[in-house]
Amino acid sequence: MVGWAIAVHGGAGVDPNLPIERQEQAKQLLTRCLELGISSLRSSLPALDVVELVVKELESDPIFNSGRGSALTAQGTVEMEASIMDGPTRRCGAVSGVTTVKNPVSLARLVMEKSPHSYLAFSGAEELARQHGLEVADNQYFITEENVGMLKLAQESNTILFDYRVPLESCGAAVGNPIKMNGMPISLYAPETVGCVVVDNEGRCAAATSTGGLMNKMCGRIGDSPLIGSGTYAGELCAVSCTGEGEAIIRATLARDVAAVMEYKELGLQEAVDFVIKKRLDEGKAGLIAVSNKGEVTYGFNCTGMFRGCATEDGFMEVAVW
């Protein structure tokens, strides 16, 4: 029997100029989700159920970039993606290109449990959702007025906006000398992907991640969130959910690397997280949350801030940005 632990995140790379009231809103949502996770763990829900439940809550709130409130493609549509993984069995499910399903993380779990596959995308994913009667909504449900405005700004400046909630003029790096990713200009980012990792009283780890991707992304773009080993990973030893510059996370297979360093280099959770953040991210900006099967919880990021919260059974609880 180990003490449970939980961590949630709402994206890494928060701009220091983000208005205080939005920071407060985000922290309130993280607190609410953390409390939901805590009470589920107290009622002995398994880790896999808890991560799904918490990510559903994050998806349903329009504050972060997942489910309702997802970033928009270049065509003004929403294409969501998510994945979930169960540590002890290493079973996993993932979806991409979801356009009508209210909770993509629950569809990812259906892929894991009710299909012979572990990853479904676009029309095939939508079809599975309908076969199983998952709650759907018109694509408009996911599109917020704020995001329509930010897409317009992104298209006018011809960038793929990461930090689509911060007005361009306050986004220092976007002016004059834009930072580049893969040779293309981008503004500062705060993708606000959401994720949750949990270890329950039986030492079972689970992870889930969900996102709308990048503002003004090309249609069909797949990021790190649905990729097992990149945005999400859970094994016997730990569970990890990442957020940030998706392409850097994929190149680093960041989530799996935390687990691989623990498994093959025999580092502890904190050492493993520090190692991959320092040694594996090259110039890319990202962050992650992680729990171990011993009941430890931690996080790491190499950018200005990450919306995050964590709690453990012995009463520790923290919600922070910087």
């Binding site: 991409s96 676009f122 893969n182 981008i186 773009r221 797949i222 990729l227 392409e247």
Partner: peptide
């Protein structure tokens, strides 16, 4: 030729 790593279905 893109800022991305992975494109799928109609977009690809």
């Amino acid at each position: 030729k893109t800022p991305h790593i992975y494109l799928a279905f109609d977009g690809a």
